[in-house]
Structure formats: structure tokens, C-alpha cells
Amino acid sequence: MSFTTLKFTLNGEPIEIAVSPSDMLVDVLRDKLELTGTKKGCGKGECGACTVIMNGKAVASCLVPALKAADAEIETIEGVANGAAHPLQETFMDLGAVQCGFCTPGMIMSSKALLDDNPQPTKSEIREAIAGNICRCTGYVKIEEAVEAAAEKLREQR
């Protein structure tokens, strides 16, 4: 198996790592870089647990060949708190949006991609943003509320 050096920016830091052409981004993050905050619930793009932000967009990292990330800006859950918890993390904690927590990193990444791009999302935009993230615990009610509340917090901060 041949290895290629993959260079990209991960949570603001430049990264160089040897990967094989069939490696998926999720596995490189979890196994090689030991950033296990990104979860794997299906490996087929059907659950969103592996969601990361690639060049500003939420993507299922289990469907992204690692080498596709060449020169990309990748953000994972580990990079979301910048010194202090991100407003999304605050509202997820305070409004009951976390139960087992397995969907949580992916949920937060999807929501962050939304709020980075759209500070005033409607309910249906929030739903569209997280519809690819399966949560079997919460019924999504409190997650939606947390995203709305975080949007408001962020607007206040601006």
C-alpha cells in the first residue's frame, strides 16, 4: 500500500500526516491523530456522528477520502472551544441537549457550520442543518432549542 503525505489545517494548526489513498478522513482523525471526539455511528454517511467542518461546510467525514482534504481547513469538535466553551456548547449543556452524548459532537459541528454562515437561522433552517445527524435519545426538541439559543447568544456577542 502506498502512502502519501496529506497536508491540511486542523483546528487552525497545520498538519502533515502519511495516509493511504483508501483512508477516510474520519479514520485519520480518530485513529491516526487520536482525535476521538469525532464519532463513527455508521461509516456510510447516514448518521452524521462523524460530521466535521471542511472549508466552512459540514461534511460527513466518513465519506471523505482523507486525501480529498488536501489543503483544506478542517474543524473538529476538539477545536470548537476557543479558550472558553462555544455558545453552542454552553446551550447544549444548559438546555438538556445532551443525553448519551454520542451524537453530540456531530450535532455541534453541524450547528456550528450553520451559525458561522447564518447568524439568524429559522427553525426550518436549523432542522435542515441537523437532519443528517441522527439522535436516538433526545427527540431533537432540546437540541433545536439549544441551537436557537446559541444563535441568540452569538448575535448578542457580535
Binding site: 482525535l35 476521538t36 471526539g37 469525532t38 473538529t76 469538535i77 476538539e78 470548537v80 472551544a81 466553551a85 453552542l88 456548547q89 447544549f92 449543556m93 445532551v98 452524548g101 453530540t104 459532537p105 455541534i108
Partner: peptide, 9 residues
């Protein structure tokens, strides 16, 4: 458990 879960830890 909330902080550990929202931070990916």
C-alpha cells in the same frame, strides 16, 4: 457529563 460530551472529551 455535559462538558465532557460537548467538548468531544
Amino acid at each position: 457529563d455535559a462538558l465532557a460530551k460537548v467538548s468531544g472529551e
